[in-house]
Amino acid sequence: MSVHIDIAGLRPERIAVVPSPLAELCMALHALSEPGHHPGLQGWVTGVSAGLDPHLADRMCEADFLWRTLFSDLFLPAAGIPGGAALPGATLAEELDLLDKLTDEQFVDAALEFTCALPYSTRGTTALSAPELRRRALDLAAARGPQQVRFSERLLADPPRIRAWLRQFLEDCDAAFFAETWSRLRHQLASDARHKTDLLRRRGLAEALASISPAVALDESATRITVDKLGDGRTATRDGGLLLIPTSLGRPHLMVLHRYDWQPVLHYPVGSPELAAPPSVEQLTLRMAALSHPVRMRLCRSLARSAFTTSELTQVHGMTAPEISRHLSVLKKAGLVTTRRRGRYVLHQLDVTVVARLGSDFLEGILR
């Protein structure tokens, strides 16, 4: 499972690394709605939440599905501007002006993404022009509760009114807490953007992508970017460009905008690097599957305490050597067991450091 971006024919000058205040505001709203995703922001979340005006806090709940359960493409409006060459604005006001430039169809379809009713990676009709899609979007919104249904009904009935509501809400968030936060973060994000731009110029795209995340890779032909995620998607730069947008508040999320006819975007976290590179989705799947077998769990109990030979494990667990070897092979392929030779003996032992990271690795994998 992964998201692919076809960049065949993409000119280097069409790749831009630039911060986005609106995208960072989306991450701020997400962190306030889902603080469990961001344990490192607990102090910031507590401080902002305590100072929020109750009326603004209530309004924050009206459309929180745009930033809580997913990250709406509305917060990256530059990607939707025709031509695939627009860049995020330097200020929130400039970005909101870009948001105003999206058509009603673009705005409504992006806002209704949470219903999963509309095509994303392929061309399709819009909810404003297709009654069957409109009905399906409302039916699926009902599964999320009456609040989402009311918002969706208002959105479909009067898009300009909802667009004005959203802009005013975001401006009020800026005045209440985000302007101060952005003034502190923008220097870090600008510095990271300059560093990535320098890497692009001196070392090439592969090096720049590797510095973003171990989960992002460029193939040998330099025509396709693959982002290792628990999800499938495909897009292409076509005649447009590629945007790389850093986020400070978004860690550990690594987002890929791959909406059809929009400029592809990699929205990546910056900050303190992990002590170890996170495993790929395939590695994580192997590890979880390896530990799901009761026999291998019992073997791990022994191997966590000491190193054992295959012969010793057959005695301890009352199994044949081929059976033990087969289970050890699965554990070693998953990277959970290490081996070392002592004379003519081969000793196996559980890598407790890797096992101890499984919980955080799993969480990062599903949130990436």
Rank of each mutant, 00 (worst) to 15 (best):
S213W: 07
G240Y: 01
L133I: 01
D361G: 06
S306V: 07
L118M: 05
V346K: 11
R123M: 12
A321D: 14
F107S: 01
A28H: 02
R150L: 13
G241T: 02
A206F: 00
V256H: 04
T122P: 10
P246K: 00
L74S: 01
G84I: 07
P35I: 07
E171W: 07
V330M: 02
A289T: 11
R59C: 11
A117S: 14
F308A: 10
I81T: 04
Q315H: 14
L128N: 06
A307T: 06
G89C: 08
E105A: 14
S272V: 15
A50P: 06
D174Q: 15
S213N: 06
M288T: 12
H327R: 07
S2C: 11
H348G: 01
R68P: 04
L96R: 04
R123P: 09
V265R: 01
A157I: 03
M297W: 09
T103Y: 07
L200A: 07
R134M: 12
R201E: 10
I162D: 02
W182H: 03
W44N: 06
E207S: 12
T247W: 01
F114Q: 05
E282C: 07
K333C: 05
D351W: 08
P54K: 03
H258V: 06
E274S: 14
A277H: 07
S33K: 08
R326N: 10
R163M: 03
A137S: 05
L291Q: 08
T320K: 15
T69F: 05
V337G: 00
D172G: 05
L98E: 02
R136C: 10
A93S: 13
A277P: 10
V270L: 04
D232G: 13
P19Q: 03
M1C: 13
R224T: 08
